[in-house]
Design a protein around this nucleic acid. Structure first.
Length: 202
DNA sequence: AGATTGATGTGCT
DNA sequence: GCACATCAATCTA
């Protein structure tokens, strides 16, 4: 499968988010290649999205969300976790897709070791767990995933059964169904409440 | 300069 | 359901 291009990312964020489902995220660490099929994402935009880090404009942290699409936006949260986003939209328009969960494909033993759990379904379920499994931290903030050899995304089959819900851990903009996930996948995070409140779409 | 606040995960109850 | 680990950016003054 071919690598995702700049023009794939430089579009309306919810559309990019939906189409990232089924794509393969690749993390190269020297000889080892850690890969997973993306099964859960969330879309975040800018001035029109109160739930977004970019809502209040450009800051040191959110700068990358406003620049050229197709870059990694990595941030640290709760004193413990890193979260990986891929930037979207045109230059000057903020946008990013949070990668929330993936189905492990290659380098499973290495990811098990990094996570310290055996259960395949738990290795990359949840944004903090995914980055931990794949060795992603602030050093990759700003990485150009269109050109990088360390972190990139391969195109996949378009998912058929996609469900949506409000974004997890967000109190504002509850009416915006900007979380997308593969319906029924055991690799998806979120409790029964979140997934019950969702609806099929696509 | 100091305080506040998380786009979380786990383990215990 | 709830406590807690633990840090960087942002907010407040």
């Amino acid at each position: 499968m071919a690598r995702l291009t700049r023009s794939f990312f430089a579009r309306y964020t919810p559309e990019v988010a939906r189409e990232l489902l089924g794509c393969t995220i690749v993390r190269r660490l020297g000889d080892t290649e850690l890969t997973g099929r993306i099964v859960e994402v969330e879309a975040y935009r800018g001035a029109d999205d109160p739930a977004s880090h970019a809502y209040r404009g450009i800051t040191k942290r959110t700068r990358v969300m406003f620049e050229e699409a197709g870059h990694a936006y990595v941030y640290f949260t709760m004193g413990v976790h890193y979260c990986l986003n891929l930037t979207t939209e045109s230059v000057g328009e903020a946008g990013a897709v949070l990668i929330r969960a993936a189905e492990p494909l290659q380098g499973i033993d290495e990811m098990r070791r990094r996570r310290g759990v055996q259960d395949l379904a738990r290795i990359a379920r949840g944004p903090g767990n995914l980055t931990r499994a794949m060795g992603i931290d602030l050093r990759l903030n700003g990485e150009d995933v269109v050109r990088s050899m360390e972190l990139f995304v391969l195109a996949g089959e378009q998912e058929k059964s996609i469900a949506t819900s409000a974004r997890i851990g967000i109190s504002s903009a509850q009416d915006r169904m900007w979380r997308y996930y593969v319906e029924g996948s055991p690799f998806v995070s979120g409790d029964r409440t979140h997934n019950y409140r969702s609806r099929t779409a696509g």
